[in-house]
């Protein structure tokens, strides 16, 4: 039987005589990390900026990536439990896209690097400058699985309420950017944008926070500028 010990200090006193202790201190997800690092290095070497887009179902991930596609040379990897609804949208826009369905991986609530590495290698052949991974819609599970990305972008929509960053901190502590979407709904939903930003900064003071509305074409521009800057920094670092 498995046992569980809460709030204990790590047992550092070694094993009994008849046992040999293998000390590890290793990441449980090492197999995932290894593949993620390969992807990271491939993308870095090729100067392609890789963004892992995460957020709840319906938060506006696809809408945001579609808006970015109007301004950036992108390719997309769509992760969903089932269906290709989102990838068909991108194909219609002539954006190179591959679909990964996690129903063959037990309907996983997240993506893992080994499941998508081949497809990410394939997307590079379309010579994009940016690749966006639309992760499975979920505010908890995807955050533990590094996919080799340069940027971790959390899409969070006004109707989700301002307290979620504190209720679901793992996603927000690891984010490099948070896009608060559907701000056109702010008056209806009574959500205080400043209060939201404050609650995100409490757990991640250095994160970039943007606001976006699909109803306001101009609102994509700061995000475009930010991502272009990040890619340029990647190219500069590479040539040093």
């Amino acid at each position: 039987m498995t046992r569980i010990h809460f709030f204990e200090h790590l047992e550092g006193h070694g094993a009994p005589q008849d046992l040999t202790r293998i000390n590890l201190g290793k990441n449980i997800l090492e197999a995932n990390e290894e593949v993620a690092h390969q992807v990271y290095h491939l993308y870095t070497d090729r100067g392609v900026f890789l963004t892992n887009v995460m957020g709840s179902p319906g938060s506006g991930k696809t809408t945001l990536i579609k808006a970015l596609a109007q301004h950036l040379k992108i390719a997309v990897l769509e992760g969903d439990i089932a269906s290709s609804v989102d990838s068909i949208e991108f194909a219609k826009m002539n954006v190179p896209v591959v679909q990964v369905n996690t129903d063959i991986y037990g309907s996983a609530c997240h993506l893992e690097a080994p499941w998508i590495a081949d497809k990410l290698r394939l997307l590079i052949e379309y010579k994009p400058e940016f690749v966006f991974i639309e992760n499975v819609g979920n505010l908890v599970c995807p955050s533990d699985f590094n996919l080799g990305e340069h940027e971790r972008l959390v899409v969070y929509s006004i109707p989700e309420g301002f307290d979620k960053p504190i209720k679901y901190p793992p996603m927000f502590t690891k984010a490099t950017a948070v896009v608060l979407t559907k701000v056109d709904l702010a008056p209806v939903m009574d959500l205080d944008v400043e209060k939201f930003e404050e609650s995100v900064r409490k757990i991640n003071p250095h994160v970039q926070i943007f606001t976006f509305s699909a109803k306001d074409e101009k609102s994509i521009q700061p995000i475009v500028t930010y991502l272009e800057g990040k890619r340029q920094a990647l190219l500069n670092n590479r040539s040093n």
């Binding site: 046992l19 293998i22 502590t173 250095h206």
Partner: peptide
């Protein structure tokens, strides 16, 4: 600043001799 609390680690394995 957030320092730690995201760990997912295998610390040790005790094997019978």
């Amino acid at each position: 600043t957030f320092v730690s609390g995201n760990e997912l680690k295998i610390q040790y394995i005790d094997v019978e001799n």
